[in-house]
Design a protein around this nucleic acid. Sequence first.
RNA 1: GUGGCUGUAGCUCAAUGGCAGAGUACCUGACUGUGGAUCAGGGUGUUGCGGGUUCAAAUCCCGUCAGCCACC
Length: 387
Amino acid sequence: MKKIEVLTEDGCARLGIIRTAHGEIQTPVFMPVGTQGIVKATAPKDLQDMGIKVILANAYHLYLRPGDNLIREMGGIHKFAGWDGSVLTDSGGYQVFSLGVLRQIKEEGVVFQSHIDGSRHFLSPEKVVEVQENIGADICMCLDECVPYPSSHAYTRDSVDLTSRWARRCKEAKKADDAMLFGIVQGGFYPELRIKSAQELMEMDFDGYALGGMSVGEPKSIMWEMVDTVIGSFPREKPRYLMGLGFPEDIVEGVRKGIDMFDCVIPTRHARNGSLFTRDGRINIKHAKYVKDESPIDDMCGCYTCKTFSRAYLRHLFVSHELSSYYLNTIHNIYFYNSLMEDIRKAIQGGTFEAFYDAFKKTWKGGELQDEHSIRDGSDAGRTGGR
RNA sequence: GUGGCUGUAGCUCAAUGGCAGAGUACCUGACUGUGGAUCAGGGUGUUGCGGGUUCAAAUCCCGUCAGCCACC
């Protein structure tokens, strides 16, 4: 069954539509992270006004607090959190990885301690699906094991096997017909294990395929090599989701390779840390050099923050720890990412994505020190992809 | 007016004759399926000022200025 309608393709880049119980999502799409069902420092209306169609919530966090059963009693996450758009929930597999000290992975599932109160919990693949259905997610993710970098071949192989067994159990546990369930490809940075993982998941026929365990400390060129290794084998009519990425340059690169969906904490977390995106790269609003800067963050940006405030005032708000700083910065960064995705879709639609890609590479300066590194890696990966 | 106490980084304060330090603030960097969190790096100084003693003074002596307290 068709889970994404591919409207047009430009090279490997795809323009498409994913239809969920809460509307249509044009792809390629960037999903802002809203762990608690809401994007930090914003209100749902702000995102709706910008044209955001889908956010990413987190089953692990919502399970611990306020509890998935409570959310179900309150009518589901959409009603509870006042969000009409689509919601994708991450299963908590990544939290098991990132909160590693507290966890124990067994065949049955994961035992872990709450980071909130230290209480012990057990999450199985079945439980994770139940939690996401209670929450009322439009797109659910399987429980997976995200292995650190570097990990041995033997450990990674066993981990892929476990992730596949868990994926099958997730698939069998799923009841809700109106929700999709995505499988997550693991395999660390061993091409044959990535292929094995992808093939085993495809045999189970998920609604979409995610690439997990990326950007965990490995060189970017290796990460893109893994994407190249498996993406060609994915079915055309299923969404492809690169989990946890990334910076604008990562997204442009991913789209070029055929990725449809992205999520990342960067635009929102960086906003709260004063790091703001412009069409040339990133600036940090806390820097003293902006103390009398009357210009907006980006004079080409159409967001409320840029239309209303100077860098000088935004710096003042940030330095003063004024709450509005987090709001205004977040609004800007999400608007920036959304505009980037609109531009990308427009380019694919017009068959000019390659030109867009080249122009982006030429003008984009990434972050401060991160710049050269990212662009160099991106270029290498780009050549590989072009062959 | 007399006596006493205090004066060191933007702020609060350490260092009792031996390389002028801490917390905070500030400056800089990191952050990739979110802790507005956190982590890493940086000392930014006429030790109120001017003399003196000493191999060596924030430290001891003299003078002076400022703030505070007590007493005329």
